[in-house]
Each structure stands twice: as structure tokens, then as C-alpha cells.
Design a protein around this nucleic acid. Sequence first.
DNA 1: CGTTCAACCTGGGCGC
DNA 2: TGCGCCCAGGTTGAAC
Length: 289
Amino acid sequence: MPELPEVETMRRGILHLVGSRITGAEFPCGPKRPISTTPAPAAIVAGIRGGRLSAVERFGKRLALEITFPTRQRWLVIEPRMTGLMLVVPPPTTDHVRLVMHMRHAREQRQHPLVFWDQRGLGTLRLVDARGLDRACGQTTLGPDGLVVTGDDLSRALARSRRAIKVALLDQRAVAGIGNIYAAEILHRTGLDPRAACHRLSRQVWDRLADMTRAVLAEAVRLEGSSIGDELYQTPARRLGRFQQRHRVYGRTDQPCPTCRTAVRRIVQGQRSTFFCPQCQSRSGRRSS
DNA sequence: CGTTCAACCTGGGCGC
DNA sequence: TGCGCCCAGGTTGAAC
């Protein structure tokens, strides 16, 4: 579920908790249905209790909570994967509440839970120090952020690749934050065939692609992400995203392309669905002609 | 370098 | 009603 816009929305939706003390934490699902954590849940609870939430950062599709102690600091890196959500209001179900952090705000002395809820449980939690943060979220793992990526960045990372552009855009080492929804929407707005081979794309096309990547992701952040299908994705306050109203091809197999009315096609690339308009997206992005 | 497949999980929708 | 199958926003590691 969460791609860059959804994770950025989570970040913004919990920013007001910066300054709060973490007075306690629990893993309510227990060992019966564990999510992947490093270290084990008990060590995470011990490692964050008593600390102060001092920053909330986003690295691609990952959220990192900086937790400060008098003599050191740690980072709790949260990867929501398919169905993970950060919530500051009661969750959709009491099932699937993976982590509860009890926050006490500096001013209002009110206890306030911060919840990581994850239906499928594919999400991961890691508690690391500064070096661990670099390993988990540094440049070796993640390329430039999708909100600021340039044509230079994309061209440098991908112009020699023989992969299809759709598959390459999902490579987090090339550009961080694009997932299946936004790859489809970016390519439609660029007019590019998702099957076009990277090494055949012109420099102009890389520039257009980077421009469209920044524009689409920024607009999706503004609209608080995409809540599709069962509307599982919600903001920390449990509002629905609104970018799905702007989707042109994602999840719209056989429906008319909003630009040209041609039926949207679904194909499979790299074991994942690709949605595109065969009419609007016929450009192979050739260097010449 | 690439691709392909399986795995990690829950749950909704569909055809029979 | 139930069963089996396919699908879903992501990532990783193994095999070739």
C-alpha cells in the first residue's frame, strides 16, 4: 500500500507528537502473529521506553522515528510495506495492532497512543543507532527521493539498463518512493510505453520523466495519498486519501482512458500488474525520431 | 548484469 | 454455504 505519498502523509500526521515522551510500549499481537522486528519485540520496548520522540523522517517508503535519551539516540525504522498504517486515533480493528507506543506530550500532560497497525503483517520494525540508520536508509540502499529526483539522477542510474522503464522505476536504488500505483500514473502522464527499454530513452525523456515524477508525487502528497479498493489506506487521523480521484490508469483495466477514451490495458511485468493506455503511451522514447 | 519464482501474511471477490 | 483460486499499495533472497 503505502508508497512515498502515503508514507509522507503518515509522517506529517504524527509530527505534532515530536517532543513527546514515550512512557511505554506494547506488542499486542504477541508472539502468536509476529511481524518482523530487529531486535525482538521485548528489546524494542526496552529500547524506546523513556525516550523522547525528537524527529520524524521519511526515507523513501520508510518512516524513521528519532528517539532521544540523555546520552544517546536511536531510530525506530518502520516499513509499512503493503498494509501498514501509523495511527493517532483508534484503529480499524483491534486485531492487527502490531505496536502501541504511549506518548506523553510535553505540554498537555495527556497520554496519547501512537499505533502501528498492519493487517497483513508484512511490515517491519527496526531499532537502530545512527550507523544502523545509514545501513537501512542510506544511499547504498535508496536512491534520491522521488520528490526531488532529477533527469540527471535517473539517467545516471538507469540509462544503461536494458530493463523496461516500468520495472526500473520500482527500483528503490534508482529513485526512492515510487511503487506500483505511481509508476503507472507517472508513465501515463509522460506518454511513455511501460515496456520501453531504459537504454533506448533519450536525455529529454529522462528529464520529462523526472519532472513528472516530482509533480505526480507532490500532488499525491497534497491530496494525502491514494485510498483505493477497500480503502484500507488512511491517514494517521483516519481520513481517506484523495489522489485516487486523479488516477488515470491504475486499477482501471478496460475502462476508458480519461485523455483519449481508449480502453486501459493490464499487463504483467516483473510479476506485478502494469496499467497503461495503449494509445497515449505508445512512445518508446527513442533517442532519435 | 538480468529475470523468475517463492516467501512473508490477511482478506475480498469470483466462479462453481 | 463452502471451496479453491486469483488478486492486492512491498521487499528479499535463491536459483538460473
